[in-house]
Design a protein around this nucleic acid. Structure first.
Lengths: 337, 337
DNA sequence: ACTTGGCACTCGGGAACACAGAGTGCCAGA
DNA sequence: TCTGGCACTCTGTGTTCCCGAGTGCCAAGT
């Protein structure tokens, strides 16, 4: 029952509503788009579309507004991801290329994405679970304290201060460091617990308490950060767009790691763009907002996700294009480093 | 010309306005506070206070509202910092004590402060300039790349990936690492450039290119981070308070490191609380907001600053109490680690 | 079987208006 | 110097009214 013209009408409604932020009526539609039919015909189509739940009117005798279902159809079947312009691509490339470390990469990425889309950008730190141990370092800080540093091949650094049970001398530490590195080098983080399980037994008895202490910290640091850090930027862009739902809720959600986590995390397909629209969203405070998410990572392994969050009334083709492009460039940068 | 009763009136106006967010009139004042005089008398006093610029009326025949100058007088002479309650103190202590590393300390601090004051909290990372080198680590990543890690006594870790001019073997790296550590251990960061200036000359000729490369990265990492990182939390709290100035400007300022830097940085006295009210503020986007800043750091050395930002119409005694308390506890935590 | 023009109907939003209430300034008296 | 009284001046709110955009339906045309 959805013939081509009705779809064209829906597309026109979405496009007009996105650009004007006002309910769009049949006459305006006939004027702005060359649909080749009269307003009356459009009215009939709109009545059908409304009955099917793709559009709605805020009140009787006002124009129509797309529903979440309408946006969904638009995204799935009526729109094409819009590639970025050449200057934009160049700007992204040079901006990201200047990053000095992983923190810098993430920070630049999130800012870039926020500025590009004029919305709120969200970036998840590369997951450690998929990465490998590059080096373990033990740095004595004082007699009874040392710093434990774990460096991964994604450039991530985990650090912990460890309180030691006894005074230990430098040599033992050096020995343990060598043993740890020999044991773990190149090992995937997921495999670390297995690799170190029998380590204390392979050491001389006097080293075991030290080893046990450090290992417990090591293991703890692995699970601790299993819930990954997420940063956002561009909150100022929310101030312009007026939300149906309070913007306080949105800001709260943004500062709640757990919510963000679920937002980014619950996407089945990592290699493609995921769009979640309004009420499709798991979190009640984020009705009225949509998110566009893409996975990124070096090679074909997806390390983490990034995306933007904005009002359901957003320009999906452009936003999706920006997210996809940024995800690709970040992947490149990470692969190169 | 400011006798005691007029000051009492001003204090009452500030307190009432802060709690009700509505211009306060003479009658309401006489009712709510036992000033022992009639509304008419209060009116006279208010006329004087207005003439002197401490209060203003939004429009003719409305109640009075404190001006920035009025808040200033209130903060300087009419209010006392309000200590936190015992439960609050305990909550702070246990919450901060759970931090595992410096990132965690900062994150917990900023969230705590935001929740405590129900406003936007801002925390500057501990300055490296005042801290000392604890350890330098060079970790080979591949044949022509190594990771350079600098650990300070404040628990801060700086990392950079260094591209090497030639293939270098492990031994040279180890030697250079030892030399660097011998040279820099315990050295204040400010003194690092001097200490390493003649280092290449003291090395065998074949090590010099390597050393030069690494040193340039080392020096760069020092100046790079001289503008310190600042984080904030509690943006959602802005949504409640309605600003005279657009909240978009405030959000923008919060995401602009440079602005935050100046906001926290331009305080003369580090050991006491600094309050900057409304127009005293350097940044035009932040008219209508006040900030309360305190320095923190281990021992008597101030490492950095933290504070909260909110509408000029804030509860200064409580806010100041919270900021001061948190600054102290963070200092303790840092001193202990 | 669609499409189209016409037409009556509906509702939201803005303008005009009146009004109550809170607050002020001033003055005369204690 | 303080106080009560009084006239005045605002803002905010509620009411009413009207315009216009937009709709739904119907009958006529292709």
């Amino acid at each position: 029952m959805v013939d081509d013209r009705k779809l064209a009408v829906l597309r026109a409604i979405v496009e007009d509503y996105v650009s004007t932020n006002e309910p769009v009526g049949s006459k305006a539609l006939a004027d702005r788009h060359s649909l080749g039919v009269s307003p009356a015909t459009i009215r009939n189509d709109m009545a059908v579309l409304e009955e099917q739940g793709y559009i709605a009117q805020p009140h009787t005798s006002a124009g129509r507004v797309p529903t979440d279902k309408g946006y969904r159809l638009f995204v799935d079947r009526l729109s094409q991801v819009k590639p970025l312009s050449a200057p934009e691509r160049r700007a992204i490339e040079t901006f990201l290329a200047g990053a000095v470390d992983i923190d810098d990469v993430v920070m630049r990425t999130v800012r870039l994405l926020a500025q590009l889309t004029r919305q709120v950008a969200v970036v998840q730190y590369p997951t450690m679970t998929n990465s490998k141990v590059r080096h373990v370092e033990l740095v004595p800080l004082s007699e009874r304290r040392l710093m434990f540093v774990l460096i991964t091949n994604t450039g991530r650094v985990e650090q912990r201060v460890v309180e030691l049970p006894d005074v230990v001398d430098e040599n033992r530490v050096a020995h343990l460091r060598a043993t740890l590195n020999a044991c773990l080098d190149g090992c995937g983080l997921a495999g670390v617990p297995d690799m170190v399980a029998d380590l204390p037994e392979r050491l001389p008895a006097e080293d075991r308490p030290l080893a046990a202490t450090i290992l417990s910290v090591l293991l703890e640091s692995l699970v601790d950060r299993h819930d990954e850090k997420i940063v956002f930027a561009g909150a100022a862009n929310l101030a312009g767009a007026d939300f149906t739902v309070g913007l306080r809720d949105v800001l709260e959600a943004l500062e709640e790691q757990v919510v963000l986590m679920r937002l980014l995390g619950e996407t089945s397909d990592l290699s493609a763009l995921t769009v979640r629209i309004g009420s499709e969203n798991p979190y009640t405070g984020l009705q009225g907002t949509s998110i566009v998410v893409a996975g990124y990572g070096s090679g074909d392994k997806q390390l983490a996700r990034l995306g933007v969050l904005g009002p359901t009334r957003m320009d999906y083709p452009v936003t999706m294009g920006a997210v996809r492009a940024v995800a690709r460039y970040v992947s490149q940068i990470l692969a190169a480093s």
